[in-house]
Write a protein that binds this DNA or RNA. Structure first.
Lengths: 342, 342
DNA sequence: GTTAGCACTCAACTAAGAGGAGTGCTAATA
DNA sequence: TATTAGCACTCCTCTTAGTTGAGTGCTAAC
């Protein structure tokens, strides 16, 4: 168990390092207002804190730097909740000023403003389209052998995909088909569509239409590649500002990671609630060993979920980011619940 | 006018510098097979070429480096057309192997393969949706006060936008409206829709439906923000490989530029035909002063156009990139013309 | 228990010197 | 007259040595 004085010193060191990105020396700490003891005392405590694994040295005679364990402790026990100032609040509010209701537009804007306010990189996951339910299904033929299938969901999202029509397809059957499809598919979630198509719709259609087999098959292939939640980025190059990323290789690895959808998705932890903080190697991705990732989720309507991530150096301003994310998730949730359709 | 020998030397220097990114000395040149004269002679010629502005020195006793004027001359007069090897051709062909017809999918894949083959960054502009023509217009109501307008174009592209329904809107009128809209809008290009709506459709609708004014107004606002051509990137971080970009600031500026749609659009020169090469400061963008941009266009169907850009250092392998782009533009054009719908 | 004092460490900076790739010029050569 | 060998010169790059200063750990005094 740490003594009060150790807590105080650890906090001072982490705060200082977060601010200045320089190893912190005993003198530097002793000059702070809230610190009443001498550099020598602080040096002793520092040595203890280092032995306990909360601090590290870059070389024998350097100042101290928080270790991952140090950050973890800081985040878990020393992070006094902080309000955010009115300028920040105003900026966040500006996201919702436009009277446009489009979800995508709001999320895009949120990503930009979050990255501006934090000066880190933000990633926002849009709603998980897979759980949307079909509101209307329609098919528009383009030529004798191709057509577009369009699905409108209850949340106003539109999925569309081109597919090939069976070679000897009777155009006159199209209307019948669309009717059957609507009867059977409305209310079904996108992820269940192709199951439903094969299990149920196929047999019904076979009674009405000749080339139903081929047709349904084409539809199934078209709806198979389920579109994942859209990803929005803000401040992709913000990390260039951080001294720890004055290293092309690190930056490159992170940027590359951000181009890979699956990697980005695995940054999120949709099943945990509240605000998650992953520090350095707590992230599964090797590329992230110098980064911390703070994530949270927000609601879109009743059962839709989106997610937010902020990526910065382990020396991240946790206090501020947590506060901002807290406001953000609530504002987004509120905005999307108010405007949600049945 | 340059002598034959000067041409030969200039070519050798540019080729060498493109390959090794190191200032080229007279000895280095003299060792080449095709060069039959001594380093001293070459030094004399180099001095002349420098006086003429084709070469530069990084310092008094360094080797020579091509100037922008040098590259320009090289590109204009010394670029013997080159075939590409069968491995490359195979890779390019693999884009079209999948039997999927979706334009977007093909373009996305092209972007990736181009960046792989060149090891530079590729940007592909999708078809200019604005010139597509309406094939089908439909409206799906979501709730009492919102609906989605959907436009399917002749090329199978789908535009959709949410909009607010007028407060006292009679749902029963919807079908009438959609009928009228289809009658009037089919065949109209996307860029002309809102003109057409205001000029023609409004008056017709007013005769049939009460809240036509508000309705059309909402539609017009929704279709106003014309969606630009989609942009696809390949190898965004490839430039990290180039020694001239071992400089965070340069890389950052370019990456930032690539996040700005308008800036990216202005890299292209859709009205010029063939393959365009902009070397260094020939680009309008300050951020591009160390880059060359090679662009070309490809056709999608009869009157659609897409564009390709390759961004690399001024020390770019022009020969190879030009050859690759040439193949690419033809293959894309062919693929999209074959599968085009009426 | 706290702190002043001091020897010690080590990164970061500076200066000086050696090495080497390359040039320009001059004079010899074909 | 065009080409080339020879040579002095330039200047980048790398290495080495020395200096500075921030910071530590330890000891002894308070």
């Amino acid at each position: 168990m740490l003594t009060n004085r150790q807590l105080q010193i650890l906090q001072a060191i982490v705060d200082d390092f977060i601010m200045f990105a320089q190893p912190v020396g005993s003198r530097q700490i002793s000059k702070k207002q809230e610190i009443t003891f001498s550099p020598a005392t602080i040096r002793n405590e520092m040595a203890d804190l280092e032995e306990l694994g909360f601090l590290e040295k870059t070389h024998t005679s350097s100042g101290r730097v928080p270790s991952e364990k140090g950050y973890r402790f800081y985040v878990d026990h020393l992070l006094s909740p902080q309000g955010i100032n009115s300028r920040d609040i105003q900026q966040i509010q500006s996201i919702f000023n436009d009277r446009l209701v489009e979800v995508e537009h709001i999320i895009r804007k949120s990503a930009n403003i979050l990255s501006e306010l934090t000066s880190y990189t933000s990633i926002l996951l849009g709603p998980d389209v897979q759980t949307h339910r079909v509101k209307r299904f329609s098919i528009v033929p383009l030529s004798s052998d191709s057509a577009v299938a369009i699905i409108v969901t209850n949340n106003g999202h539109v999925e569309n995909r081109m597919f090939s029509l069976p070679p000897n397809f009777a155009a006159s059957d199209l209307e019948k088909m669309v009717n059957v499809l609507n009867e059977r598919l409305v209310g079904v979630s996108l992820e269940d569509i192709h199951k439903k198509l094969e299990a149920e719709v196929l047999s019904v259609l076979q009674q009405h239409v000749r080339s139903a087999d081929d047709f349904i098959h084409a539809l199934v292939t078209a709806t198979m590649h389920n579109s994942e939640s859209k990803i929005f980025y803000g401040g992709k190059t913000n990390m260039f500002n951080q001294p720890e990323f004055h290293d092309l290789n690190k930056v490159r690895m992170i940027l590359d990671l951000m181009e890979t959808t699956s990697q980005v998705q695995s940054l999120f932890h949709p099943n945990e609630s509240g605000i998650q903080i992953r520090i350095g190697s707590e992230n599964k991705q090797l590329e992230m060993e110098n980064c911390s990732v703070i994530t949270t989720t927000y609601s879109i309507g009743e059962d839709q979920q989106g997610a937010i991530a902020i990526i910065g150096p382990t020396r991240m301003d946790y206090k501020r980011v947590v506060a901002l994310l807290d406001v953000m998730r609530m504002d987004l949730t509120q905005a999307f619940t108010k405007n949600r359709s049945d």
